Computed example of a mutant assay.
Amino acid sequence: MYRLGFLHGGSFSQLTTLADPAVQVWRPRDIYLPDATEGDFDGLDTLIVSDRLHPGLLTNVVPWIRAVAERGGTVVVLGENGTLDWLPGLRGFRPAETNFWWWRTPGGDNGVRRSGDGHEAWDHLTERAVRWHYHGLLEPPVGATVLAYTDLERDGDPATQQVLLYEDRVSTPGRLIVTTMDPVYHHGSRFMPGATQLLLGLLRWTGTTAPVHLN
């Protein structure tokens, strides 16, 4: 049986998301960050790390989060969650101004582009799912697959620190899916349709491709 964990801090948006029937269909294990124990992370095939967690409390459980990927599982890390310097392989993080109203500007283009054509992620994610807004730019590990980036923010080498979503299968025996978009907050707050598409698409993608029955 597929085992999904949902790590959250008990905010209204996180609890609303967790209670959504579209999420509950995956039978997620409810992991409340302030009370989390090592055993809560045992045996998970996929772990969703909700956006906007308390940084001090998150630090306490980082070894258990990483252990899921070290056992061969999938860890999905959603932004905002600090600088993400605890993630294996991540080479850089740069804050970025969040443009909430880009669609009201002439041309309506926030510069977000999908990447990795032919990747299995695009069997589950729409282009709209990655094109709304973001809270930082990532420099993923060498060998990771970039799935979304922006070409409007450049700092030095234009090939670095523009990434908004990537999949990393090189830094651990499992896989890390990392984004600076915050779909749990927006889905639970009932606004930003693209965020809902991203959240549910990530659940479908990981739920249908993750190896199960990990030791």
Rank of each mutant, 00 (worst) to 15 (best):
G143S: 11
V146I: 14
P140V: 06
L147W: 06
T145R: 13
A159P: 01
L164N: 03
Q162K: 05
A144C: 01
E167K: 04
L147D: 09
Y149E: 12
R154A: 09
A148C: 08
A144L: 03
G143K: 08
A159S: 15
T160G: 02
Y149K: 13
Q162E: 07
A144N: 05
P141T: 08
Q162Y: 01
E153C: 01
E167I: 02
Y166G: 02
P141M: 06
D155N: 15
T160H: 11
D151F: 07
V142L: 11
T150K: 04
P140S: 11
Q161L: 13
G156L: 07
V163L: 00
V163G: 01
E153M: 03
V146R: 15
G156W: 13
Y149M: 09
L147K: 14
Y149A: 10
T145E: 14
D151K: 05
D168V: 00
Q161K: 05
L147C: 11
Q162R: 15
R169V: 11
R154V: 15
L147H: 10
G156D: 14
G143W: 10
Y166F: 15
E167F: 00
L147Y: 10
Y166R: 04
V142A: 14
A148R: 07
Y166E: 02
V163N: 01
L147I: 10
T150E: 07
T145D: 14
A144Q: 03
Y166K: 06
P140Y: 04
D157R: 09
A144V: 01
A148G: 11
D168N: 02
L165A: 06
A144M: 03
D157Q: 12
V142K: 12
V142H: 08
V146P: 02
A144F: 00
P158T: 06
G143T: 10
V142C: 04
T145H: 08
P140N: 08
T160M: 01
T160K: 15
P140F: 03
T145G: 03
L152H: 13
V163K: 01
V163W: 02
A144W: 00
